[in-house]
Design a protein around this nucleic acid. Structure first.
Lengths: 191, 191, 191, 191
DNA sequence: GAATAATCGAGACGGTACGTCTCGTCTTTCC
DNA sequence: GGAAAGACGAGACGTACCGTCTCGATTATTC
C-alpha cells in the first residue's frame, strides 16, 4: 500500500504547459523537427522535468495526442452498420485533417514506434484503444444478425484502419468521400 | 554527346558490398540502430562512396530492399479473383517473414519516409510499383465481369495493402491464414 | 532589536548529521564527487535544510573542516624559531595526512574558491586564521632579536604555507621530513 | 611502426581557432564561466572536434596556456643566484598579470586538477616543466659553490613556486616587489 | 490550549553544462 | 579521377548537479 506521498506535488501547470507546447510545435514544424529542448523552452520548463515524467519525446507527444483525441471519437448507434461506419470514419478523418493536425502527429508517432521498441509498446496500447471503438461498432451489427457467420471482425477492422493509416503514411488525402467508400466496401464484405 | 568517360569506373564490387552489408546489419540490429558508419565499415568502403551514389542512408536500404524484393513478386492468373489474391498475398507475406527479414526493413523505411519528405517521394515510387501488381490482379477480375459496377479498385487495394502495413507496423503476425481471410473479405466486398 | 525568536528551533541533530555526512563522503569519494544530494541523503536531511544554514556546498564542507581542524593547531613556545616551526609544521602536516583526510578536503575547498568568488571570501578568512598562528611564531623570534632587520615576515609565511599548499595541490607527499627541511630553510633565510 | 596515415589531416586551422577562442573567452569570463559549447561556437567548430583531440575542456585550456607561456620563460645566467632568481620571478609574475591574464587561467586549471584526477596527471607534467627551469637556475649556483652543502633544492623550489601559487590562488597581488623579496629570502636560505 | 511561526524531510522545479552520437560533407592519400 | 580513410561542422540527445520552491508534518512560542 502506497505510503502517503511526501514532498512537493507534481506541477499540473508544468504538465499542461509541456503538452500544450508539444502540440504547438508539432503543428508548426512537424514531428521530425520538434526537439526536446524546444518543447522545454517553449513550455518554460527544465528538460529534466520532461524526462522525470515521460521516458522519451514520443511519449510526451503521445500523451498530448491522447488528450486531444479523447474528444474526437464518435460512436453513434443508428442501427445500420454502413451508416455507423461512415459516421465514425468521417469523424475520425476530420480530426486527422483538423486544425490540430492530428494526422501529422500520428504519422510521427508511428515512425517513432518503428525506431524505438519500448515506445512501440505504449503506442500499441493507444492503437488498441482506438481499435476497440471500431470493433464495437461491428460487434453490434453481428449481434443484430447483419453479419455473415464466420466473418473475421478483426481482419475487417485491420482493413479499415489499415486503409486509413496506409493513405496517411503515404501522404495521400483522406476525406469524407473515402470514408463513404470504405464504409460501403466493408458493409458488402461482411454481408 | 557523351564524351567517353574518363577515370576510374564505378566499383560494382563496392556497390554490392554496400547493399549486402546493409541487409546484414538491418537483420542484426533493425533499421533504427543501423548507422551509415557501420554500413561503410562492414562493407569496407568509404562513406563518401555511399553518398556519391545514394542521397541518404534510407535510399541505400531502399535499393537493397528492391533488389531482394524483385524476386518475391508473384502474379499468377488463375481466372479466379479470390485465388489470385490469396496467392499474391501469401507470397508477399512469406517474403516479409522470410530470412531476409524484409518486414523489418520495410518498417524502417516507412518510418524514415515520415521523417524525411524527400525520401518519401522515392519511397512512394517503390510503393506505387508494388500497388500496380495488386491493382492489375483486380483489374483482370473487372474485365472478366466479376466485380460489381462502381466498385472502387483503388480503395480495395488500399484496404488490402493497408491491412498488411497496419499489422506490420504494429508488429502483429502476418501469415498465410491472414492472407486467406483478406482474400475472402475482399472478394465478397466487390461482388 | 531582535524580538525573541518564535517557531521551531534549529535542529542541532540535523546540523551535526550534515557535518558528519560531509566528512564521511569527502573521505569516501573526494571533494569533486560529493554532491549536495548525496550529503542530504546520507544525513537523512532535506536539501533545503542545508541551504537554510549555509550558502553553498563548499561552506558546509568548510565548517566541517574548521570543526575538525580546531584541534590540530599546535603553538608551543620553545624559545627557538626552528624548533617552533618544525613542531608547528609537523603537527599541521600530520593533520593533513590523518584519518580525516583533511588534505583532500582542503584541496577541494581551494578548488571551489577558484570557481566561486563569494566562497573565496569566506575561505580566505579561514586561511587568514591559520596564517595568524604561523605569523605569531615568527613574530616571537623577531621580538627575541633572532631575525635580521628588514626581513619580510609576510613573505616568509607565504613561502612556508605556499610550499605546503603547492605540494598538497600537486598530490605530492607532505611529511615530517619535509617539515624539518622547511623549518631549516626558513630559519636560515631570516638569519 | 606507424603505417603512413590515410585520410583527412587534422585541421591546423580548427586547432588554432579553438586555442585562440579559449584564450579569448578565458580573458573575458574567467575559467569557471567558459563552457565547451562557447569555445566551439566562438571557434566555429563542432564540439566533437574538441573532444576528438582533447579529453576535456581543461586540457584545451592547458594547451592554450602552454602555447602562450612558452614565450614568457626567462632564464638568464648572470653568475649571481639572487639576480637570476629575481629576473626569473619578475618575468614569470609579469606574465601572470599580463594582458593574457595567465594568472586567472592557471588558477582555473589548478582548480580543475583538484576535481579531475586524470587531468591532474597532465597538469602535473606542465608544472614539472616549469619547475625544471627554476631548478636549473639553482643548480647552477650549486655548481658555482654558492649553496651550502646539504641544502634541499627541491624544497627551495617548492617554497618559491609555492609562495607564488599561494598568493595567486588566494587572489593576492604578485608583483616585482614580491619577486625581489622572494629572491632575497631564498638566497639567504641557501647560504 | 488555540493560534502563529519557523523548521524539518521529501522531493519536484527551472536551469546550465556536459560528453556522446549520428549525420552528411570535405580533404588527403593511394591506386 | 574514383575509392578508402577519416576529420569536420552541426546539432539533438539524455544525464548530472545546482540552488530554489512547495508540500504536509513537527515543534516552539505567544496570546
Amino acid at each position: 500500500m502506497d505510503r502517503p506521498r511526501v514532498g512537493r506535488k507534481r506541477s499540473e501547470e508544468s504538465k499542461m504547459a509541456i503538452l500544450a507546447a508539444s502540440l504547438e510545435l508539432l503543428r508548426e514544424r512537424g514531428y521530425g523537427k520538434v526537439t526536446v529542448d524546444a518543447i522545454a523552452e517553449r513550455a518554460g520548463v527544465g528538460k529534466q522535468t520532461m524526462y522525470r515524467w515521460w521516458p522519451s519525446k514520443a511519449d510526451v507527444v503521445l500523451e498530448a495526442l491522447t488528450e486531444t483525441a479523447r474528444t474526437s471519437i464518435l460512436d453513434r448507434d443508428s442501427g445500420d452498420l454502413e451508416s455507423d461506419l461512415r459516421a465514425f470514419l468521417t469523424a475520425t478523418f476530420r480530426a486527422l485533417n483538423g486544425p490540430q493536425a492530428l494526422g501529422v502527429v500520428m504519422r510521427g508517432l508511428m515512425a517513432e514506434a518503428q525506431l524505438d521498441p519500448e515506445f512501440a509498446v505504449r503506442f500499441g496500447e493507444y492503437i488498441a484503444w482506438r481499435r476497440a471503438v471500431l470493433s464495437s461498432i461491428v460487434q453490434r451489427a453481428v449481434e443484430r444478425g447483419d453479419v455473415a457467420k464466420g466473418t473475421s471482425i478483426e481482419a475487417l477492422v485491420d482493413m479499415l484502419f489499415g486503409a486509413m493509416w496506409y493513405r496517411l503514411l503515404l501522404d495521400r488525402p483522406i476525406g469524407p468521400k473515402f470514408a463513404a467508400t470504405l464504409a460501403d466496401l466493408a458493409t458488402r464484405a461482411v454481408r
